[in-house]
Write a protein that binds this DNA or RNA. Sequence first.
DNA 1: GGGCAGGCATCGA
DNA 2: TCGATGCCTGCC
Length: 279
Amino acid sequence: MEYIVDNGFVVLQNVEDFRPELIFDCGQAFRWIEQADGEWIGVAMGKVLGVRADGDKIYLDCPERDYPDIWYDYFDMGRDYARVRAELSSDDFASLAAEFGKGIRVLRQDPWEALCTFIISQCNNIKRIRGIVERMCELFGDSVTYRGKEYYLFPTPERIAGLSPADMEPMRAGYRAGYLLNAALEVVAGNIKLHELEKLSYDEVMDELMRLKGVGKKVANCVALFGCRKVEAFPVDVWIKRALDRYYGGKGFDVTSFGDEAGIVQQYIFHYIRNGLEG
DNA sequence: GGGCAGGCATCGA
DNA sequence: TCGATGCCTGCC
């Protein structure tokens, strides 16, 4: 956990795998926004954070203690992504994708936020997902001030559980609003313990999550990967399915061939097929 | 102005 | 177990 503090910034040095535009714009998190000067500002884990990359240095605008307490884990800094990429060398397609996506990291997000955002994601495009999530936070989240500007935290399950369907209409989440309300009620009732899930096996996590209405295999895999630290989770959406069909002969493909960190490979492939294959 | 977007639940074979 | 269908909404 090597870092220095420089002029109020936490500075990570000699970081090879950390490109904010890839991390924040590859569909795993929906609340990071690029500023005109290239800095990224996001709301996560109950905080607001500014992130700037300059060569192999990463500048985090946060109190020093927040790095070991929060952001080291959130940015998955304990994982050697160069090793993950190197281990794919026997797979031509995956290593191409990994090379193209060098700089991606899989964020370790709050499980409740991951659950809600990926419930919202179903049958939706990223732009609209972002809009719904943002309205959800502005309507029901607590406000915090950062550099003199107001931001809204992701609302707690308790707050959502107290809403009526009519209260949720301004979110414009459509039929997904009912799923969110149900999930909040289940969490508040203690019928699912989101923060305990990471201690369970991947299969157990999937079973628990899929008990919730509106949570099927795809959403559960996303929550397991991004919210419960299950890096073997491999969400298959229409894009990934097309890629597997095309490059691995489709149906019989066994994702465990990507190893026990298949979810990281999924992020590389997802980014590659959407941004790297044009022309 | 339809089709469609990083699914899911339900229903009928 | 599998395929078809409706679901809210809004951008293209």
